[in-house]
Amino acid sequence: MNKIISILVICSLSFSCKKEVKDENQKLKVVTTTSMITDLVKNIGGDLIEVNGLMGSGVDPHLYKASEGDVSKLVNADVIFYNGLHLEGKLVEVFEKMQHQNNKTIAIGESLDKNTLIGSDYFASNYDPHIWFSVENWKIITTFVINKLKEIDPKHAKVFETNGNAYLLELDTLEARLKKKIATLPKEKRILVTAHDAFSYFGKAYDFNVVGLQGLSTATEAGVQDVQKLASFIIEKEVKAIFVETSVPKRTIEALQAAVKSKDHEVSIGGTLFSDALGNLETKEGTYIGMFEYNVNTIVNALQ
């Protein structure tokens, strides 16, 4: 990481790395970190902006390290949108350095009232950064991004506002569908066991008891005692299914399933959930809306 920071410093002084003079008709260059943010910014900016996402499908932002190939994208960006709240833990130093160089870096997590955030000892921010798993949070963040793009590129403010408002209506429709689907699952069955605790905002918003084997960060490892304790919980609560995540190795959930079986009980793997990244771009799950609907359908169908 120190090597990447050094490159950023050199690039800030080097002619070859300096931003090109921007033609007034040139598209706004936006760099995003996670695929959720990439999808959001594209929905608002449309064809008026050029978006480069650093993290693709299945990429774990907790462990992501900037490559030297990312440097030119970061240095030449007009604006960088990232999650913040130490989700991109290994990029924090890079963004702090860029702020000192007067680069436009914007943490979308700053748009949320800290009183609504879920506390966490796993991150330096002291908050759970998985804020996208509340559609209400995502609506607030959408409005925040609309306003930031309007400030940065005022000549296209009307288009950003129109696109953003259309997307907010899509989020309203999404939430109505999610609540209707979740309502079919009795409250006593709403126990969500996953590889790591990325779904706390989901649990809070939709009345699920969420338990993650690895805690909030994939940088932590689940120990034998953690597995055995959670296995006993699953048996006691008669949990029907547990879930793998796309950005976390499935061996942790398989170990949990084996621990339950060793106690003469059975629990199925209910499917794979998208947690820290969206699906492939060419799929419905490659969008925030498609991902969220897929997750809810998978969870509810497996726990029925």
Rank of each mutant, 00 (worst) to 15 (best):
S247K: 05
S16F: 11
F202H: 00
T143H: 09
L178V: 14
L40F: 09
E266T: 14
L117D: 10
H100V: 13
G164N: 03
P154C: 10
K187Y: 01
E20N: 14
T33S: 07
A77E: 03
V9S: 11
H86L: 05
L230P: 00
H62L: 08
S14H: 08
N137G: 13
F81A: 01
T142Y: 05
V41K: 03
V267D: 09
Y206G: 00
M98V: 06
S16M: 10
F274L: 11
E245L: 13
V92P: 08
I299H: 01
D113L: 12
W132L: 07
L216E: 14
N147T: 04
D23Y: 12
T105V: 15
V239R: 00
D60S: 11
K65D: 12
V135S: 07
Y64A: 08
Y64R: 03
A66R: 03
T34V: 08
E68W: 06
N2F: 14
K150F: 00
G45Y: 09
G286D: 08
H100M: 15
A107Y: 05
D78Y: 01
I269V: 12
I289W: 05
L185V: 02
C17N: 07
Q101R: 04
G58A: 05
L303I: 11
P154A: 09
E293Q: 06
E88P: 07
T283S: 15
E68P: 13
S125F: 00
G215N: 02
Y294T: 02
N137A: 11
T142A: 04
V211T: 07
I44R: 11
I106A: 05
K18H: 14
L273S: 05
D207R: 00
H196M: 01
K204E: 01
N76Q: 13
D172S: 10
